[in-house]
């Protein structure tokens, strides 16, 4: 049982981490971009994209991508998982579509979250104070508004990563990646109770550890929650 989990875990790890980097980068930067253009067309465009991304189920995106990118146009070979240490190129070829599929929903969510957080901090009194000090607008935005506005996102991001590390069932199944999610599905289908228990335990542990890490990280970012 342990061996099974051990072989499946790295796949899930790479899948989750890659998607995480993708959605954090895209989500936060687009969110900030929208907030800075609040009320103008770039803001509306970004929010429109977010709405679409939010509404599309991941199996649909996955199947569409497989159909066009792999089957129809043959831009990428059919995914077949290989460790990045054995063949980095093939690894990337395999993972790029799963990453995108997995990241779409969260990107949409983080765009929205970031935009709203940043807009909220723009109205904070301390941002006004920063302007009243005569700081350049870029310093006001980056150092004062964004730093405070992005902090709550740390919490959300950490937890979302943790859930993904427990296995992305749909994505793994669509792309036949041998990760924890796929393992969980097969164990349930085969009524392999010890394996189900094992996967649940691993997932739960990851979530608890992530919770702790997020809390500690939060204390680093926000001095108000530091221990006295």
């Amino acid at each position: 049982m342990l061996t099974l989990i051990e072989t499946a875990a790295p796949t899930t790890f790479w899948l989750a981490t890659g998607a995480f980097i993708l959605w954090i980068t895209a989500g936060i930067s687009l969110g900030i971009f929208a907030a800075l253009n609040h009320g103008h067309w770039p803001d509306r465009l970004v929010m429109g994209i977010s709405l679409v991304g939010y509404s599309l189920p991941s199996f649909f995106i996955g199947l569409v991508l497989i159909f066009f990118v792999i089957l129809q146009f043959g831009w990428l070979p059919f995914p077949s998982y290989i460790s990045p240490f054995d063949n980095p190129f093939q690894f990337l070829q395999t993972m790029i579509l799963p990453w995108i599929v997995l990241a779409v929903l969260n990107t949409a969510f983080y765009m929205r979250l970031t935009r709203n957080q940043v807009l909220e901090t723009f109205n904070e009194d301390y941002v006004r104070t920063a302007r009243a000090k005569g700081l350049p607008e870029r310093t006001v935005v980056v150092k004062h508004a964004l730093r405070a506005g992005l902090t709550p996102i740390v919490t959300a991001a950490g937890m979302d990563l943790a859930y993904l590390l427990g296995g992305a069932i749909i994505t793994e199944s669509i792309f036949s990646l041998p990760g924890l999610g796929a393992l969980a599905v097969s164990s349930v289908l085969e009524s392999d109770l010890p394996l189900i228990a094992g996967i649940t335990l691993v997932t739960a542990t990851i979530v608890i550890v992530a919770n702790l890490v997020v809390d500690l990280l939060y204390a680093v970012v926000d001095p108000r929650v530091r221990l006295a």
Binding site: D125, Y126, T129, A130, D222
Partner: peptide, 14 residues
Amino acid sequence: AMIFQDPMSSLHPF
């Protein structure tokens, strides 16, 4: 220069 009503929210908490 300017000072504001609420010194708690006018100073950056971080």
